[in-house]
Simulated assay, not measured.
Amino acid sequence: MTESTHRRFGTTTAPVPGDMGWNLGMVLRGYQTLFEAAVADMPAGIRGFQVLSAVVHKDPPNQQALGAHLAIDRTVLTYLLDTLVDAGVVERIPDPGDRRARKIVPTDGGRKMLAVYEARVAAAEYDLMAGLEEDDARALALLISRLAKSVHRALPGASPCEAMDNL
């Protein structure tokens, strides 16, 4: 077989320009499938998990900062927060620095719920990387994190959800 035949049928190990998009898309699709299943019972699903996780781990100063961090439209965020407030996992309190603004804080129940779902998400991520050696999986996770932060610095207003919708 010639090199072009090997390449055409995917048997080459050399990177091909343009394959990164397909590779990232396949990995993301696999991740999304496992992630959706892991948080299926979470109030507001994936978005509810992301909001609660950001509230707990990032402690944004107010609702506007939370929306900006997650690249969620203000109106959509309001509905998500209503769902999470109704579920008893977050509260809206006056922002200590600006009484007109609201800070979103987790409840004790919200923290406990997040811990349960983080364990499920961790198991899903482990399953996704099951085909890799442990050191490779750890290195991949670190490299993806570095690359994502680099892209975010270069394109701070970019929405990962919008990117996926347009992929």
Rank of each mutant, 00 (worst) to 15 (best):
P106E: 01
P106F: 00
P106M: 00
P106Y: 01
P106K: 00
T107P: 02
D108V: 11
G109S: 07
G109I: 00
G109M: 03
G109R: 05
G110K: 05
G110R: 04
G110Y: 04
G110W: 03
G110N: 04
R111I: 07
K112F: 00
K112L: 12
K112G: 07
K112D: 11
M113G: 01
M113I: 00
M113L: 13
L114P: 02
L114H: 01
A115D: 12
A115P: 05
A115K: 08
V116I: 03
V116F: 06
V116G: 04
Y117F: 15
Y117V: 02
A119M: 02
A119W: 01
A119I: 01
R120K: 15
R120Y: 06
R120Q: 15
V121Y: 01
A122R: 04
A123P: 08
A123N: 11
A124V: 07
A124F: 12
A124M: 13
A124E: 09
A124H: 10
E125K: 08
E125D: 11
E125C: 12
E125A: 10
Y126P: 01
Y126K: 15
Y126H: 13
Y126A: 15
D127Y: 03
L128E: 03
M129R: 11
M129W: 02
A130M: 12
A130T: 11
A130D: 15
L132I: 01
L132M: 15
L132V: 01
L132A: 11
L132S: 09
L132G: 04
E133T: 09
E133Q: 15
E133I: 08
E133K: 14
E134Y: 02
D135P: 01
D135E: 13
D135N: 04
D135V: 02
D135K: 04
A137D: 03
A137V: 00
A137Y: 00
R138T: 05
A139K: 06
A139I: 02
L140E: 12
L140C: 13
L140N: 11
L140W: 05
L140A: 15
A141D: 03
A141L: 10
A141V: 06
A141P: 03
L142H: 14
L142D: 15
L142E: 15
L142V: 12
L143I: 05
L143G: 09
I144M: 07
I144P: 00
S145C: 03
S145F: 05
S145D: 14
R146K: 12
R146N: 14
L147I: 04
A148V: 06
A148E: 07
K149W: 06
K149G: 11
S150E: 14
S150T: 14
S150Q: 13
V151Y: 08
H152W: 07
R153H: 12
R153Y: 07
A154C: 04
A154D: 06
L155C: 10
L155M: 10
L155N: 10
L155H: 11
P156N: 11
P156I: 09
P156W: 09
P156C: 14
G157T: 07
G157H: 10
G157Y: 02
A158D: 06
A158G: 14
P160T: 05
P160A: 10
C161G: 09
C161T: 09
E162I: 13
E162D: 15
A163W: 08
A163L: 14
A163H: 09
M164G: 12
